[in-house]
């Protein structure tokens, strides 16, 4: 719905999550010491959106490993632009962080902003959201190659959720890598419209996150043709990666944290330790695996390089396909 999708909602919810804390109690020495009592985690998603759910779920378990309380704050608007501007103004003392996704890099590249991704310091990565290519359950395609072959000889439309997004560029890369240059890449606002158009056959395939597809996979309404990751997913052991099919396409849709520039060492090392612990928590592990997330811990010292490399690569790709000028 265009009106809703465009008017970003913004609400601050300051609720301490107590769910689950009663069933499990950590002894004090298991917890990583932290210089702040309360930590604010900012997301550009509206309540109920991707990063919002990620943060709220993670903080439930994070409290077992970091000696602090967590508050999630939604600073929506401008596809992350407002959240970045907000974060850059905060003190770099470890009391406030921002949930990173490729969106904030893309917004920085696509729009001439005063404050962009380079104003923030990447802290640590937590997950990859594995990207998959899917089609409707009764589609004639059995493999990604079938779709590519069709696209070379007939009209074939492929869907990505948003116009200036990693998914969009992924499909452009797929076109380039396979020579299916006539395939049409159709974007919409959000995954819902794309899904409807896959189900009704307007789109042959679409790229999406495993998370968003859970309901349709369960209901056997869609079929995953390929996984855009280095390895097969534990949730979909029978689905090959694009690499196995000879297409070298890997998407790293990361979910992590970043803070204002100049984070102190005791803060970064506390997070390095705590994220490893939280990812190993059996209860959380069961939860995030069911949700379709792949743990991908990247420590602080490597995450800065990771984000910068990612940003440079994407800038290169965007200017290659002509979306932005160098």
């Amino acid at each position: 719905m265009l009106v809703h999708a465009r008017s970003a909602a913004c609400v601050a919810l300051t609720v301490a999550f107590t769910l689950g804390a009663g069933s499990w109690s950590a002894s004090a020495q298991d917890k990583v010491a932290y210089p702040h009592k309360a930590v604010t985690l900012v997301t550009h998603s509206s309540p109920g959106g991707g990063s919002d759910v990620f943060l709220r779920d993670m903080t439930k378990y994070l409290k077992r490993y970091i000696d602090a309380d967590f508050v999630v704050e939604n600073v929506s608007g401008g596809s992350g632009a407002k959240a970045m501007a907000h974060l850059a103004k905060q003190k770099a003392d470890g009391s406030v962080f921002y949930a990173t996704t490729p969106t904030y890099i893309y917004t920085s590249h696509m729009s001439a902003l005063d404050t962009n991704y380079s104003a923030l310091e990447p802290l640590v990565n937590v997950f990859y959201d594995p990207a998959v290519i899917y089609t409707r359950a009764d589609a004639p395609f059995k493999t990604l190659k079938d779709v590519i072959d069709k696209a070379k000889s007939a009209r074939s439309a492929w869907g990505a959720a948003n116009p200036g997004s990693l998914e969009r560029i992924t499909l452009e890369q797929l076109k380039k890598a396979t020579g299916a240059s006539t395939a049409a890449v159709v974007t919409s606002e959000g995954g819902g419209e794309t899904m409807i158009n896959v189900l009704n056959g307007t789109l042959d395939i679409a790229v999406g996150e495993l998370q968003e597809l859970r309901s349709q996979l369960e209901g056997k309404q869609v079929r995953v043709l390929a996984v855009l990751a280095d390895e097969r997913l534990s949730q979909l052991p029978d689905v090959p990666t694009a690499k196995e099919g000879g297409i070298d396409l890997v998407v790293r849709k990361f979910r992590g944290l970043a803070g204002p520039k100049g984070l102190p060492d005791d803060v970064t090392s506390a997070w390095d330790a705590a994220i490893q612990k939280v990812l190993a928590d059996p209860e959380y592990k069961a939860y995030y695996e069911a949700a379709g997330l792949v743990p991908a811990f990247i420590p602080h010292k490597d995450y800065v390089t990771f984000i910068n490399t990612f940003a440079e690569e994407q800038k290169e790709l965007l200017s290659e396909v002509g979306v932005i000028k160098k």
Binding site: R168, E172, V185, V321, G322, V323, K325
Partner: peptide, 9 residues
């Protein structure tokens, strides 16, 4: 409107 950037996409 003359300032709207063009895109190869």
């Amino acid at each position: 409107a003359a300032d709207i950037p063009t895109s190869a996409l």
